[in-house]
Design a protein around this nucleic acid. Structure first.
Lengths: 116, 116
DNA sequence: GGAATACCCATAGATGTTCTACTGGAGGAA
DNA sequence: TTCCTCCAGTAGAACATCTATGGGTATTCC
């Protein structure tokens, strides 16, 4: 993954974050990005150039389904909803994430102990 | 970053893990991989094709310095040691990692609450 | 009416990390 | 000798993300 110069992004977790956001109900791109940014207290920044490719990717893989509809502001927007497969996928990715965080935590935390 | 089919790797944290491992003292590639895998309880797998490019990258950036020496098994090995800049870099990356984990945790944890 | 301003979707091209799949050498043991 | 383990390394592909665009449509403001 590429860390950017701007140095404020995610890592490989965007799909998981999108799927998690859609658990609350269908939403369009703009809202998804807003919810993630807001919920993370502005730590996570979702670029449009990352968001839409991710959404298309998720749809290709059958994790989400989309349809056109009017946004809250009466604009044309493409809404995405979680599929049953997407819900299962979210579980898989979340479990993987948790175990990664724990594993990395163990490496970061083995304070000064010399392993021989 | 690319998640692989084998589905058992890291994300963009390899540099941080290597730097953290070197806090315990100089080590060569094989040992670094072993320590990370062992400490993470076999959750993290370090491929050689990822490890050596990462090591060279870290050296190019001045986070580590290397020298040749004999391994514990009396084989020729390139040892890497943390530089002062590398130590500072580790702090930066660790802080970033922690804040990312917390941020993602907030998104994953806002159980069912609808944000409007 | 016309202009400015959100809002909303989208893509091309570049960048950077990691993976797979190799190659190759050197030490120790059988 | 042969075989196995240790150790380093590279090329090429795969993939997610970023930067930088472009465009279209409602609302508001002059």
């Amino acid at each position: 993954m590429g860390r950017s110069k701007k140095e404020e992004l995610l890592l490989g977790t965007l799909d998981m974050l999108i799927l998690r956001t859609l658990v609350m109900g269908p939403a369009h791109g703009h809202t998804i990005a807003y919810v993630i940014e807001h919920t993370s207290e502005e730590v996570l920044q979702i670029e449009q150039g990352s968001l839409y490719p991710a959404l298309h990717r998720l749809e290709d893989r059958g994790w989400v389904a989309s349809y056109w509809g009017p946004s809250e502001n009466n604009r044309k927007a493409r809404f995405y909803k979680l599929t049953a497969a997407g819900r299962r996928r979210l579980t898989v990715e979340t479990n993987r994430w948790q175990s990664m965080v724990e594993a990395i935590g163990r490496v970061l935390g083995h304070a000064g102990r010399v392993v021989e």
